[in-house]
Design a protein around this nucleic acid. Structure first.
Lengths: 214, 214, 214, 214
DNA sequence: CATGAATGAGTTTTCATTCAT
DNA sequence: CATGAATGAAAACTCATTCAT
């Protein structure tokens, strides 16, 4: 049995190496795709561009992702993972409702400005009808829900004016956040988003905060 | 010579009929294209979709609009005309800076919610790199400029707090307007835009108005 | 209204011409496809071969038949129409059960030997799992049913031994017919089918006929 | 020198183990291929299907069989071996011409119904133009020759009517055998072939046998 | 020997655009 | 002017085969 043990051992070693190559290829592919989808519409994007951009053969793309839709969906998934991660990271710290809300918005504005995969995901999410997951912008609505619950929490922990209508306040916060995001996208593909958000942030604070600030 | 007179007369009549048909065809084409471009990306949209949607043959499109890009550009132009018309209409009334600003925003929110060509234009304007006029979203920046000048005017006519930084205030107003627009687009393709804007409008008024309101 | 009447009239004339061209193109395409599918497996057949064989551009194929499967299905349909036509033609003559049965077999053996579209249909029908209509060989079973009913009829009209088990007799007839067909296909792509069937035909007659023959 | 003896011994053991694995892999591969080719056309069959079906990696196939054509040819060879074996087994018994003919037919009908590799071989043999051995259905013609010679032998040994034209009689026998086979293939992939053949067998016996039977 | 990722040469399919009628 | 069939260039996708481990 020694021989087959050896073979098994070698098999495992080989497998790991192969798997690593596979993983890195997949990552490069996702990266290239993110770059392409962040500057082009889904239908405009050519898979050849993705292949060239990532230095991977077109055939290989079909080994890792069955087709164009799946590739786009993979990007959407990464986007959601990263945004969720940012969210949870903040929520794990024990902050007041207001601080958590602001921390999340700050965090997300930076993430969106710096992470091209997240940018690609946002663009893809806004153009359904492609075969992409119908609820691609489920995250949007989740984000709205979270905003509302944090405002309610802030009302209880004293950081936010308790008399506010949570739903209406949440809508306002989201309008401001999303508006800043869209203007930044138009102007310089999100590069200015964090600063722009900082400029309008005081309006949110002033509206929500129970502490008079100047 | 009577016969040829008849023929000439008939020719004129024919010409008129043909011309009328041409005009209506062109209109139907634009309408169909607007419906298509308002729900699909430029690259996703098939000219066959436009043909089917408008009940006009594909070949005919090439008589009226040289090609796909020109068709899209025609829509962008209509959009700009209609938005500009709304703008001028308000500006022609002699209103205070604040009232003009709010009237324009109200007007535009209604126009966007109700006019599918305008909707199509907005979507097209947000996806450059297509061969569409590079400065397709020139209107955005023009709108920002107008906002700023109205705020400055409001500072002078007393309707708006004079101590405000006009540029910063304009940015805030636009962030709110654009944010409400985007959320409405996502939720129900702009149908809820006017109401949503009315809900956030008080924040704008509260921030700008020199008159304390409750 | 004279002008538009003229236009309508011209429209009709144009439409007819266009339609004729369309029909002939479609026919040539079907013909070329039949030639290709009669010598190659569905999966082996290249659409380029069909295009070349019929002198029609590849793109045009997709105008007339949406895709490869539909093209194959169109051939199957033509095959079924032609075989059904042969069948009905015989059945319309008032023949005895035996004569009808034999006439149909004769007719079909000639049709199969001479009509390349029918040949293509037979081959296609025998290779499902392609996306072709699952019941592509429904005709086979229909044919078996008809055989059985003619034998029963022959039992009643006195042309066929009444004591025969119709189902079993039908199976035998079909086995012989189909066997002759398959051997002819292998040997010379059906060219020898009619003669071969004539050689084995007496076995069928001897078995079924109520009249002693030598 | 003991160490190197050990190594040599282990080397031999390893070699044997490897060799055994090789043999079983080859067998599984052939089996999987048979299953795939028995339900799909050569061109439809994906080597990946074979790999999945046999649980062997695609790359490994290329070690054992140079390429797709060779794999198919290996199956054809197994089919021919098994059919020939059945044939010779019967021929080795000293039977009359008629009994030998019937025994062979019975044997083959059972073999075809039960052996998926034989089924695969039959299907492959009927789709040339693939790159498979041109005379893939040589066996068919060989079988016809054997039939004829057994009929002639039967004429001499008294088991078959001596006045029969051997060639014509052989054709009839083959038509019936092949017809039953094809109908069974269509109906239930050969499962019913033995029974069906038994149902039509009396026609063959009645035609050939020199002994009046009822 | 086995594995499975990678490749590239084909194939199918799509669609803007042209053009004869 | 309108129509819709035809075209071709480009895109998506497939898969036998190779090859590093």
């Amino acid at each position: 049995m020694k021989a087959s043990d050896d073979m098994a051992a070698e098999g495992r070693r080989t497998a790991r190496v192969v798997q690593e190559r596979s993983i890195s290829t997949r990552a490069e592919l996702l990266d290239g795709a993110a770059r392409v989808f962040s500057r082009l519409t889904y239908a405009e994007a050519r898979l050849k561009d993705v292949a060239d951009e990532s230095g991977i053969s077109a055939g290989s793309m079909y080994f890792h992702f069955g087709n164009k839709v799946d590739l786009a969906q993979a990007i959407l998934q990464v986007q959601q993972e990263r945004m969720t991660a940012a969210l949870t990271e903040v929520l794990e710290q024990e902050l007041t409702g207001l601080d958590a809300l602001l921390a999340i918005a700050d965090r997300l504005s930076q993430l969106i400005a710096s992470d091209i995969t997240v940018q690609a995901g946002i663009k893809l999410g806004l153009q359904p009808g492609t075969g992409l997951d119908a609820d691609a912008n489920g995250p949007y609505f989740e984000w709205i829900r979270i905003t509302e619950s944090l405002i309610r929490q802030g009302g209880e922990d004293g950081s936010i004016k308790p008399e506010l209508d949570a739903a209406a306040a949440a809508e306002y916060v989201n309008v401001v956040f999303v508006g800043a995001q869209l203007l930044s996208e138009i102007e310089d593909t999100w590069a200015s988003f964090p600063e722009r958000f900082q400029r309008v942030r005081p309006h949110i604070v002033g509206f929500l905060s129970s502490q008079p600030r100047d």
